[in-house]
Design a protein around this nucleic acid. Structure first.
Length: 492
RNA sequence: CGGGAAGUGGCGCAGUCCGGUAGCGCAUCUGGUUUGGGACCAGGGGGCCGCAGGUUCGAAUCCUGUCUUCCCGACCA
């Protein structure tokens, strides 16, 4: 765990930015609030995407693609949704540039080319998709409609942070239509389970599944299910959401179907998404002062091999062994990279691969080769050990799993240690200030109370956990009766 | 949208108060020695100092305007 974690917020933010930049995941771009995802970072995203995509398909979904632009009239059809996103929409108003007559070599927006209707760059695709679904759904035979899209969206945020809150980000958004309310709710829950499974078993990031309070709910949803993770600085991160949309969008876009008895009914809807924000969560869950620590299951490179040599002859001698070793590992489905770059020295490479979070590093020099040994270093624990070369090949698949499990256990222990009960507001503030993390407290269920608590503590209700136990108590603010505790935290 | 700070080779910065030949570290290029935890020595290349005006014999430096970025809040996934 990083020493900067306990330090000031600015230091923590600098630590985080350094991890992203030095870990070669992404860079700032020339466009305000946007980032360039570098090949290594994109490789990580691709791995995550592929696993999720398979899970979506395994649960019966198909991929499709819808337009980037949403005509304003469509966008405003579902009022609450439109209102919720209105403040952060990028809007296309013109379709042409022309030479500026007053300044040679410069372009200007052609005032003649004003669009009759403005186009909104999608902040989310419900509007354009439901406008399409209207034509796709006629009968109960067309249901359920289970579609996902991988896309970029734009939200013009006041303040941006690499991966966590960029003006443009990559995500997937699932949009489904169902004949019954029960089936739609079932779908909503199923997808939050898929997300939780992915977060915990692939990203090694423990999450709490729960339901959002009314004020934290997605604009236009009846219910929002969430997975909440805890970062090393004690702040919570909403890592994924799944929304039960009721019939709000069906009514707004007039999506009806004929049931078996030939009655026209509105369909029931869900939507769910996770974004490149997950990468931000991954970084802040596992990394240390040496750089990123990536879980083996999604790491772009799982094993990096560093030969230590002087001159071409020695290099070739080592490569003979290393290439066959790499080949064997690849046959076991392991992502291996031999870093035989002659222009970098071993120490530099060690530091570099640690910054990039590669789970296992193998180093081989002639000294080891003579004894038939190879050095193996674990990124998660920072330990080094010598193994016989043929033994290491057998050992690595299990070791990758061990590292995966170890990372999850460590993160989970930290998270579990940072769920603290509080019965008074003073207690809660003290915990939030000093210990940080989640505070489990009673709440009377009203939005006013939640708002007041937020004003006084800067913490919001992260979720009402799904596995909550009933417990009689009194609201931490108003003293009104409450049947369960909910989780508060300061959040990203 | 409020409050701060900053824009100087690819990156990180000094120089600005007190105007006078544009510097340092990293990176890069060449040559050599090196190579088991971010190598060393020597030599070289690269910048109209964010942009636009103004003051001045002379502006990175002073003045005015403007744009952008970052940080802290508020808002948000």
């Amino acid at each position: 765990m990083s020493k900067v974690i306990t330090s000031r917020k600015e230091d923590y933010n600098k630590w985080y930015n350094d991890l992203v930049l030095k870990g070669e995941l992404a860079d700032y771009s020339a466009v305000r609030g946007c980032m360039v995802i570098k090949p290594y970072g994109f490789g990580l995203w691709e791995n995550m995407r592929d696993i999720l995509d398979k899970k979506f398909k395994d649960t019966g979904h198909q991929n499709a693609y819808f337009p980037l632009f949403v005509p304003k009239s469509l966008f405003e059809a579902e009022e609450k949704n439109a209102e919720g996103f209105a403040k952060e929409c990028a809007v296309v108003t013109h379709y042409r540039l022309k030479n500026n007559p007053e300044e040679a070599g410069k372009l200007m927006v052609d005032p003649e080319a004003k669009l009759e209707e403005e186009l909104i760059v999608r902040p989310t695709s419900e509007a354009i998709i439901w406008n399409t679904y209207k034509d796709w759904i006629q009968s109960y035979r067309d249901l359920p409609l289970l579609i996902n899209q991988w896309a970029n969206v734009v939200r013009w945020e006041m303040r941006t942070r690499l991966f966590l809150r960029t003006a443009e980000f990559l995500w997937q958004e699932g949009h489904t239509a169902h004949a019954t309310k029960e089936e739609a709710i079932q779908e909503t829950k199923q997808m939050i389970d898929v997300y939780a499974d992915f977060a915990e078993n692939y990203m090694a990031m423990p999450v709490i599944k729960g339901v959002k309070s009314e004020s934290e709910r997605f604009a236009g949803a009846e219910d929002t299910y969430t997975i909440e993770a805890l970062m090393q600085d004690g702040k919570a991160l909403q890592a994924g959401t799944s929304h039960f949309l009721g019939q709000n969008f069906a009514k707004a876009f007039d999506v009806k179907f004929a049931d078996k008895d030939n009655n026209m009914e509105y369909v029931w809807a869900t939507s769910w998404g996770v974004s490149t924000r997950l990468i931000g969560g991954l970084i802040m869950t596992h990394s240390d002062d040496k750089g990123l620590v990536l879980p083996p299951r999604i790491a772009p490179i799982q094993v990096v091999i560093v030969p230590i040599f002087k001159g071409e002859e020695q290099k070739q001698e080592l490569l003979q062994t290393l290439e066959s070793l790499a080949k064997e590992l690849k046959e076991k489905g392991i992502r291996v990279n031999i870093d035989a770059d002659e222009t970098r020295r071993p120490g530099w490479k060690f530091a570099q691969h640690e910054m990039k979070g590669v789970p296992i590093r193998l180093a081989l020099g002639l000294r080891d080769l003579a004894q038939g040994k190879i050095e193996l270093a674990r990124r998660d624990e920072g330990t080094k050990e010598l193994f016989a070369i043929d033994e290491v090949i057998k050992r690595i698949p299990n070791l990758l799993e061990e590292i995966q499990d170890n990372m999850f256990s460590k993160a989970k222990a930290f998270r579990d240690n940072h769920i603290t009960k509080a019965d008074t507001l003073e207690e809660m503030v003290k915990i939030l200030d000093e210990k940080t993390g989640f505070v489990s407290a009673h709440w009377d269920g009203s939005a006013e109370t939640e708002e007041e608590i937020q004003k006084q503590t800067k913490a919001t209700i992260r979720c009402i956990p799904l596995n909550n136990i009933e417990e009689e108590g009194k609201c931490i603010l108003t003293g009104k009766p409450s049947k369960q505790r909910v989780l508060f935290a300061r959040a990203y």
